[in-house]
């Protein structure tokens, strides 16, 4: 007789859960499978043959490299912006108490709650009105709007767990604002910033909607893939790139998860 409580879920529930998980993850496996097919015009199942030729073909395509480089640059710079601005926002909103604080908190978080298409249209018309030509920097700005939120959310949670007397203790012991930030605040929020930064990077790296509204001639990697799907030419190349995107975004997200899952105790409350 089994006494394992975790195995007592009714059979239909287990079936539904398994079905749900398969529905979510099988298409991902299909992407991986089609990256190695010998058929390059249509998605034929089962794949008529197995080849690793597309890895080499993808490697040799300059447009893939161009899109990948652009995406990495945009994600890096948007994340860097977000780290600075998001941390400052979190520091201000978690420590000070002032009129309208709740409203400002909402405004900071809004870009991630708004549909990307609204953010995209809003930015596009704003750029148009101010006659700012679409460029690399307009994409970065678009991505920074939601990257800031991710960094802010991670940092504000950590700031709230940090006892405010830690900062006062540092001042009291003779450290000025900069020294206090470097020796006390940064070590306490460092992992939260790393986690927020990784998530922001991953979000920016696969962003499509805001990018379509804020990009000029440049193609980030997700945009390039979208265009590539319409042209039936060397199709498995797209799948190889998709595989790479999954890996590039999965690693930072897992990293962020591991960095923030522990540490429930309040930093610096000494009793």
């Amino acid at each position: 007789m089994r006494s394992d409580k975790h195995n007592n879920a009714p059979f239909p529930l287990k079936l539904a859960a398994t079905g749900g998980l398969l529905f979510l993850h099988l298409p991902l496996l299909l992407i991986f499978a089609y990256a190695f097919t010998t058929e390059d015009k249509s998605f034929q199942w089962p794949p008529p043959g197995f080849t690793t030729r597309w890895l080499a073909v993808t490697w040799a395509r300059p447009d893939v490299w161009q899109a990948l480089t652009l995406s990495l640059q945009v994600a890096s710079i948007a994340t860097a912006f977000a780290l600075v601005l998001g941390t400052l926002c979190a520091a201000a909103l978690s420590r000070a108490r002032f009129f309208g604080q709740e409203a400002i908190t909402l405004l900071v978080i809004l870009p991630i709650a708004l549909p990307g298409i609204v953010t995209g249209i809003a930015l596009r018309s704003a750029f148009g009105m101010m006659q700012i030509p679409f460029s690399f920097w307009t994409i970065v700005l678009g991505h920074a709007t939601f990257c800031i939120v991710v960094v802010y959310n991670n940092a504000v949670a950590r700031f709230r767990r940090m006892s405010p007397s830690l900062v006062e203790a540092s001042y009291d012991l003779g450290a000025n604002g900069f020294q206090t930030f470097r020796h006390v605040i940064l070590p306490n929020i460092g992992t939260a910033l790393l986690a927020g930064g990784m998530l922001a990077f991953a979000l920016s790296f696969d962003e499509v909607i805001v990018t379509t509204f804020t990009a000029g001639q440049q193609q980030t990697l997700p945009i390039w893939m979208l265009e590539e799907l319409i042209r039936p030419h060397e199709r498995p190349v797209t799948n190889v790139v998709a595989m790479a995107v999954v890996l590039v975004t999965l690693i930072p997200i897992l990293g962020a998860y591991y960095l923030t899952r522990d540490g429930a105790e309040t930093a610096g409350s000494g009793k």
Binding site: L166, E168, A169, S170, D172, L173, G174, H183, N188, G268
Partner: peptide, 27 residues
């Protein structure tokens, strides 16, 4: 002027020795 805080406010990311040496370190 130095303060002993009600919640002690020891720096959780430092050893006891580094906590005590903090004021001298920043100077």
């Amino acid at each position: 002027v130095n303060t002993v805080f009600q919640d002690y406010a020891l720096f959780p990311h430092m050893t006891i020795l580094d906590n005590v040496a903090y004021g001298l370190m920043v100077r």
